[in-house]
Design a protein around this nucleic acid. Structure first.
Lengths: 248, 248
DNA sequence: CGGCCTCTTTGCGCCAGCGCAAGGACAGCT
DNA sequence: AGCTGTCCTTGCGCTGGCGCAAAGAGGCCG
């Protein structure tokens, strides 16, 4: 699907809660500072550690934000889709990209220079506040992942990752909820903090149990409820059925 | 040490980069909306899941922000000290505390109601922007921890945790850098994503090597450089010396 | 000074899940 | 149809580090 520049901008702005509460005049002012770009699948919008030269507002497609460790292992920090801002948040800190952004699909995005962006923030207080709320949401979700990583087992983390993805990029299809992005086992491993092998084994097991349908770069959640159960109730192998919360 | 209310407010405001760039008149306006509180060690400023009733600006002491998982395991998300804001950030999202805040010391803090706080943001755009930068920094550090947790081994994570703590709450003493907070092995475990046992063993080992001095709820970093080496260069047990980055 | 409570150390067993290797399946291209 | 490259599966061995239990070491208080 190809959109005109105006339509692109419009749809991106309309979908972005970031711009909620701004007047029409403000929006026009904003729109003038953004420039359209296109990226092919697997292309990088920017690289970890580089000085920030542009922020992007996603219009079409999805990107992953990854961090790479010295020995080459990757972690996916976020998946971002239309209406979301890429690269801006962490850069307000020190001006270098803390991760790389890679296109998962063909991506259309609107770029803005850091200087222009900061100027916008000064000019439109509403924007700063919206962005603050957005950042708060991201923080919250990253906090949850932190907790899961340190306290939960790989299997449950994977279940949670799938649930999250379903909410974020799920699309209803006949058999259930399709995760609407090309996710390899490797990518799922990086999202859930485990290895490609464990992901493969676990997904297969769940397919046997009728919870999922899996294919190459494709997961359909057939039984959402069963998955939620796996994510929330899945006990330790041999365990107390459930301990009530101490401060319940 | 006991401070007058005014002195408390002054010192807290002065230390908070949050209030940088605000005029004297603005500061007076702000100060009027904050109310002093005191908490004893181990007391909770607020509890995970509760509706937010107040945010706090730290004046004296330190708090930990923790999340608890269903089976009772805790993770420390942040340690916060004087000049930092407690509880506000994640609440801008949905209004419930995503973690509990527990005093590590005796704590003096200034509270403000969420409504007043949001009003301040509207009134003082500078404040929103400052807060945004602050949130960006937090995001960045949490991202690093996420990456470390999924890609690095327990020993190295612990080394990093100590380095971070040294920068954050370190105090120079004769023997080296003292971590100036009552940190049990358990707390270090929750910060570095491992178990109390592994922390104990590893610290002892490093003490033998002369990197640290450890005691009950007490760590002094003797050889900062050695610790940094452990955090950054510590290779896999039997390993390639170092692989250059693929896209270097 | 003796008792208590919390924090810490250490030996030992065990298993979740990582890592490799080999083979299979699928998609796109010519 | 055949080729090629990428992605996925699965068996197998191995180990980091978790978890328990029991004993030691400080602090603190009466």
């Amino acid at each position: 699907m190809v959109l005109t520049r105006e339509a692109l901008a419009l749809s991106a702005f309309a979908r972005a809660p970031l711009f909620a509460g701004l007047g029409q005049a403000d929006l026009v002012d904003l729109a003038a500072r953004f420039h359209p770009h296109h990226f092919a699948r697997d292309e990088a919008l920017f690289h970890e550690g580089h000085r920030a030269h542009a922020y992007y507002l996603m219009a079409e497609g999805r990107v992953k934000i990854i961090q790479t460790s010295v020995d080459g292992a990757e972690v996916i920090l976020h998946l971002l889709g239309p209406g979301e801002l890429v690269g801006a948040l962490p850069n307000l800190d020190d001006g270098t990209y803390p991760g790389s952004a890679i296109a998962l699909d063909d991506v259309s995005a609107l770029s803005i220079s850091p200087a222009d962006f900061e100027a916008l923030l000064e000019l439109h207080p509403r924007l700063a506040i919206n962005l603050l709320h957005y950042a708060a949401g991201k923080l919250r979700s990253v906090h949850s992942r932190l907790r899961e990583l340190t306290t939960e087992r790989a299997e449950r983390r994977l279940a949670r990752t799938l649930s999250r993805l379903a909410a974020q990029i799920g699309r209803g299809v006949e058999a259930g909820v399709l995760l609407d992005a090309p996710l390899t086992r490797q990518a799922l491993a990086e999202l859930s903090g485990t290895s490609l092998f464990t992901v493969s084994r676990t997904l297969k097991e769940w397919e046997r149990q009728g919870v999922l349908q899996v294919g190459r770069e494709r997961v359909v959640i057939v039984n959402t409820h069963a998955l939620a159960t796996l994510a929330d109730d899945l006990p330790l192998p041999a365990s107390h059925p459930q301990r009530p919360l101490p401060h319940a």
